[in-house]
């Protein structure tokens, strides 16, 4: 029996951050030392993945201004639209794929039982969103711009403002979690987690761009963040 699942462009592991990146101290004891085992012939196990088209979403799941209190009160902070297109490496849109995101509030505090930063929780902000991309691969969230916050790495390390973004894509081979940073943030070049990437162009893939055309006058700014997942190859010559 032949597998008829499409394959994907090989993931360039020199483009992504290495497992061992000592400037980010937690990676030191959490990075494998053995070589990864390469699967030259991927199977259905790698080339298939979940389709979340039937996951029932709440009406505010992609609206972080509303979803924690169902609109009873608005959160503090700069109101923004975060949107973009999920596409593969050939520029082909990825429709109906699950995009999830989470973030700190405007003061840089996460609503998480382990976050004890001085900045207070915002009673009107949870910090989680999800949506499916539309027919053209676009996703859209409404939220507030998160604040930077200090973290224990070097003596005085600060995270640039960022939003964690998770995308599934067409199979578990395209699974990706990244962080979106904000164009022009002076903390980006100082961040040890950003520095896990060797190539400045790789950092650029994670920087959302201010998009005045899509902002709403007297309401909110917009940031555009396109997400590129591994290119899906068409299957030819499979019965060789």
């Amino acid at each position: 029996m032949q597998s008829n699942h499409n394959r994907f462009v090989t993931r360039d592991r020199n483009w992504h951050p290495p497992a061992y990146a000592p400037g980010y101290k937690t990676s030191i004891a959490r990075s494998p030392q053995q070589a990864l085992m390469s699967m030259q012939q991927p199977t259905a196990s790698e080339l298939t993945g979940p389709d979340f088209s039937h996951l029932r979403m709440g009406s505010y799941d992609n609206d972080l201004l509303m979803n924690f209190t169902q609109g009873e009160g608005l959160p503090q902070g700069e109101r923004i639209i975060l949107f973009g297109r999920v596409m593969d490496q050939f520029g082909k849109p990825v429709p109906h794929t699950l995009v999830e995101m989470w973030q700190a509030n405007a003061g840089g505090r996460y609503r998480h039982k382990k976050d004890a930063y001085l900045a207070p929780l915002d009673p009107h902000f949870g910090g989680v969103g999800r949506c499916l991309t539309d027919d053209q691969g676009f996703y859209r969230f409404r939220t507030i711009k998160p604040g930077p916050y200090p973290w224990p790495n070097d003596v005085n390390s600060w995270r640039p403002a960022h939003i964690h973004v998770s995308v599934m894509g067409p199979s578990i081979s395209s699974r990706l979690i990244t962080q979106m940073y904000f164009e022009g943030d002076p903390l980006i070049p100082l961040c040890p987690i950003v520095h896990t990437l060797k190539d400045p162009e790789a950092v650029e893939t994670m920087v959302g761009r201010l998009d005045m055309a899509n902002s709403k006058p007297m309401d909110c700014l917009a940031y555009r963040f396109d997400i590129v997942v591994r290119g899906e190859l068409q299957t030819y010559f499979e019965n060789q």
Partner: peptide
Amino acid sequence: LMLRETASQTAGPYVHIGLAL
């Protein structure tokens, strides 16, 4: 002919608020 994949970053210590509520 092709784009680079968006780079990966750690899911971080607070991944639960987004993916494991």
